[in-house]
Structure formats: structure tokens, C-alpha cells
Computed example of a mutant assay.
Amino acid sequence: MEDKLKVLYHIFGGIYVPRDIVNSGAIVHISDTPSFIYNSIIKMLEKIKPKTIIHTGDIADDIKLELRPQLIDVYKKESNKFILQLSNHSEKVYIIPGNHDSIENLTIPDNVEVKYEGETIKIDDIKLGLAHKFENLPDNVDLFLFGHDLNSGDFRYLNGIKNINVIKGRKEIIKLCYPIGTDNYRLRKNRLGK
């Protein structure tokens, strides 16, 4: 039954949240988020009630600011709205800027912290390595969080462009599917903007 629910949520633009992570206070890792899926992400966060959200870059990935700087006003509007929503659904939010982000054009709420590629954070005794691009990840951490492209490694490398990663402890990682069409909204992210 759960597999059918996952498919239905995916097809209808939602994100299926398994019961065991509802109200879990887990860490949620997202990356390369087109503005078209913001509502689905917020609905997911309302169910999970994460303690921490980590966004590994390209906050409004459909705008592709690096390639289309003339869209800065659209980027500011969409990204600032989304960051505020994220901050309202978690105690702490970390943002690692991507190649299509402009941090100086963002309004950062008090519970949101900007980190940069290669930095680490520690949450609940889990040392997390942060980057937008795989090649900029630090060494000597428990889990590696990144986005940008389709690179991967062993189970400790969590690619936020492939899945929404929900982290409950060092070894319990639940991978959720982004809504159908997310890659199309990313403008075929696996080929553009690397």
C-alpha cells in the first residue's frame, strides 16, 4: 500500500512522507529547488516538523541566476519568500550558496545561517560536511551533503538533487522523492548549469 501512496503523491505533485518520520524532528536536506515545488516542500515540512533544514544551494533553481542575471528581481522575490517559509518550519536552517544563488540579495532570518562549501556542522553528534558541488566537500565527517549534479558516493554521500534526505541518526536515512517534473523545472539540471 505504501508503494502505491508514494506513486500517487509523486504523480500529483506531492511528496509522500512515511509515518515513521511524521513529527520526527529529523534533519531534512534539500537542494536545487525550483520555485514550482516550494508548496510541496512546505507541506512535507509541516508533516515532518524537522529540527534542522539544510539547503545545499540553488534556492530558486528554475531561475538559473548565473545564466540569467536579468532575473535578479524574480530570484529575490521567490527565494526570500521560500527562506522565510523554511525558517518558520524549523528551529534552524542552514543554506550553502550554489552557483545560481546571490546571498547578498537575500534577507536572512535570525534562525537561518549561511555556510559555505567545505564547511562542517555538528548536529546531535553527527558531523556533516557541506557543499553545493561534490568536489568541494570536506573530509573526515560522518555524512556528506551536497547537490548541483548527479555525483554520488557510498551511503554517506547524500545528494540533495536526487532525493530529499531525511536524517534520523547516523545510520537512519530516508530518501523521499521530489514531485514529478522537478527535473524539468530545474531545466534539465543534469545537463545545464554545471
Rank of each mutant, 00 (worst) to 15 (best):
G14R: 11
N39P: 06
A131T: 10
P138V: 03
P18T: 11
E117F: 02
D20W: 03
L65N: 04
I53H: 07
Y75E: 04
K51Q: 11
G14Y: 09
N80A: 06
K43M: 07
I15K: 11
K162E: 12
G57N: 09
V114D: 05
E119I: 00
T33W: 08
H29R: 09
E113K: 09
F36K: 13
F12S: 10
T120D: 08
K43N: 15
D124S: 12
L187S: 11
Q70G: 01
A60T: 14
I174C: 00
N99F: 03
F36N: 05
V93D: 11
N105K: 10
L71H: 10
E104S: 10
D61R: 05
E113D: 03
K189T: 11
I21M: 04
Y16C: 04
A26G: 10
P69W: 11
A60L: 05
N88L: 15
G169S: 03
K189G: 15
F12L: 15
Q85F: 12
P50D: 10
N105V: 00
I180Q: 10
N88K: 15
D124T: 00
N105L: 00
I174Q: 01
G98M: 13
L192R: 14
D110V: 06
T120E: 14
R170D: 01
I41Y: 08
Y178C: 03
P138T: 11
S90M: 09
Y185L: 06
S40C: 04
K194H: 12
V166M: 09
K194R: 14
N163T: 08
V141L: 01
K194T: 11
S152N: 09
T107Y: 09
K4Y: 13
N111F: 12
N163L: 02
Q70I: 07
N159D: 07
H29G: 01
L150T: 13
D3W: 13
E119P: 03
G13C: 08
I167S: 05
H29D: 01
D58R: 03
D154H: 12
I27F: 05
I72V: 14
G153Q: 13
K92G: 00
H100A: 00
G160M: 10
L86S: 00
I164Y: 07
I174A: 00
I48E: 01
H29P: 03
I95L: 15
V114A: 01
N140A: 04
L176E: 08
C177L: 14
S40G: 08
K51T: 13
K171L: 08
I180R: 14
K47H: 03
G147E: 14
I108Y: 11
S31L: 09
R191V: 13
N39S: 14
S87F: 11
V112A: 07
D124W: 00
D58H: 10
F82R: 02
G129D: 06
D101M: 05
V114S: 02
S152A: 04
I37Q: 10
I27L: 12
S87Q: 08
Q70M: 07
F12W: 13
K133G: 03
E119Y: 02
I103H: 07
E113Y: 10
I48K: 00
L8D: 13
Y94C: 07
I180G: 00
I173D: 00
K51D: 15
F155K: 14
